[in-house]
Simulated scan of single mutants.
Amino acid sequence: MATIADVAQVAGVSASTVSYVLSGKRAISAATRARVEEAVSRLGYRPHAGARALASSRTGVIALVVPLHDAVDVGVVMQFVRGVVTTARAHEHDVLLLTQEETAGLERVTSASLVDGLVVLDIGVDDPRVGVLARLGRPTVLVGIPRDPHGLPCVDFDFAGAARTAVAHLAALGHRRVGLVGATPSSVRRGAGYADRLCEGFLAGAADAGVATATAPCAATAEGARACLAELRARLPAPTALLVHNEAALPHLLGALAAEGARVPADLSVVSIGAPGAGERALTGLEVPALDIGRSAVEALLERIDAPRAGETRLLSSPLVDRGSTAPPR
């Protein structure tokens, strides 16, 4: 394996000059830089991670904070994780995974300078981690939008806009009674911001379109799906369409409808908002671009590792795709 001394010998310079070229800490002439870079390429030299960290005061590692609480859908979370990890590797960064819900892990990795920055998933409306992260001062990007981001940048899907798009699609087909199958009860209790924003968009879009609505959370079980349907129908007799924002409950919901003999879309139209690949049946709906959100979060973090920048919120969107699960009401 080539060493910095080997690079220096081939380039005809000192080892310190090679270090300066690699770190960018001193101005080096274009001719000398070209010789060093050519030697690095020819020898396949890669600086040792520890040496890079000492030279640049950086670790080349970012933390990915993914609290694995009871309500988490691991399949959905892994799509976000994949977006983060693949983008980090493309920028020659490794990823340290933190799965605790408490803040102690955040303080540990930042106080010990183990990471250059953090991407934090599953941010709640009043998430206690946000204030801690702002205080710690390490570059951080939140995936989710808290009530008060404390100046930290946020990246997420435009759940409110997606709900408005879904309602507009159903209203254009003639539906005037639409139920929302919402997030799991545990997600609602812990203040999942995406659930609140989607519900707000749903109600606003329905009001604009003159659509009557009912909303209910849905546990990700067969019993939970039946209970959700019963609650929606009690609040909104004979709904002609459902908007479903609950990947884990979706198979149970479709199973409950099939057991009743309800045909989709002949008897009931269904629109889904969720991560790609949710459920066995492809439904009309909007996909949450989990890979793109993960990629965008890492890119925003790396920008802030390079230079401080003001916090901003970026919302990603996706188009509604008609897969044949909606039709005009009978």
Rank of each mutant, 00 (worst) to 15 (best):
A104K: 12
S19D: 03
L242C: 07
S111G: 14
R108V: 15
P265N: 15
H245C: 10
D292A: 14
A160H: 02
A112I: 02
S317F: 08
F202Y: 08
S23G: 13
G144I: 03
G279M: 02
D6T: 04
G311M: 11
Q100F: 01
E260F: 05
A53T: 10
P149C: 08
S111D: 13
G311W: 10
R33D: 07
A172H: 12
E231D: 15
S56W: 00
S41V: 13
V84W: 02
L114H: 15
P276K: 08
D73Y: 05
L229V: 13
G75K: 00
Y20P: 01
P67S: 09
Q9K: 15
R295F: 09
L302A: 12
G12H: 12
G274E: 02
G151D: 07
G255F: 04
G24F: 04
D292K: 07
A168H: 11
R82F: 13
V130F: 04
P239F: 01
D156E: 11
R26K: 14
D94M: 09
G144N: 11
A53E: 03
R226Y: 05
A11R: 06
D322N: 12
I4K: 13
A310M: 13
T32K: 14
L54I: 13
A34N: 09
S269K: 06
P329Y: 07
A195D: 14
E101G: 11
G174I: 06
A278W: 01
S111T: 15
L118M: 14
E312R: 15
A171L: 05
R330P: 15
S272F: 09
A71P: 03
P149F: 08
R197I: 08
S56V: 03
L243G: 02
A195E: 06
R323A: 15
D292F: 01
M78P: 01
F159Q: 11
L133W: 01
E231C: 03
R176A: 08
S186M: 10
A327H: 11
A63N: 04
P251S: 13
A90S: 11
A34F: 09
V288F: 01
A163W: 01
G294V: 10
I305V: 13
V270Q: 02
